[in-house]
Amino acid sequence: MLSIDRSIVDAIVAHARRDHPDEACGVVAGPAGSDTPARHIPMDNAARSMTFYEFDSMEQLRVWREMDDRDEEPVVIYHSHTATEAYPSRTDISFAGEPNAHYLLVSTREPETEEIRSFRIVDGVVTEEPVRILEPGVDPHAVQSYMFGQSPATVDYECSGR
């Protein structure tokens, strides 16, 4: 499960919307071993493409060194898909090189709907995990979990049994 502050999710979605229709990418660093994403670092997409993203290698060296100096690690690595669902492509899987990271995907295909999903990708195996968004000032034990890209705007609150 990925637990992440609402303010960071909002910043990631804003970055993805801003760069749409190109794919956006970045990192959320957190204290090493904490599994807590704390510091949002939007990165340049060196590919500047609607279907591919690639960190600029020099920017990545700078950011990774900075994390090392601060005893942080990349807790979340995110990117957007701009016309398709928020699910890892084969390219995403073959490149996934941070076994401890949560791979967060944002789809910007629907302008009004927030579609966020999180995955672990280890040795080519993709495992989806729930995303728990921590709302400010809300008892964390009362927060709902969202999965499969649902957000409060799209959750169907009607009772089943139709």
Binding site: F52, F55, H79, S89, R90, T91
Partner: peptide
Amino acid sequence: VTILPAVAGGAFGFAA
């Protein structure tokens, strides 16, 4: 010498 995993990917898979 520093080795880092390249971070890349995207919707457009090799297969696609």
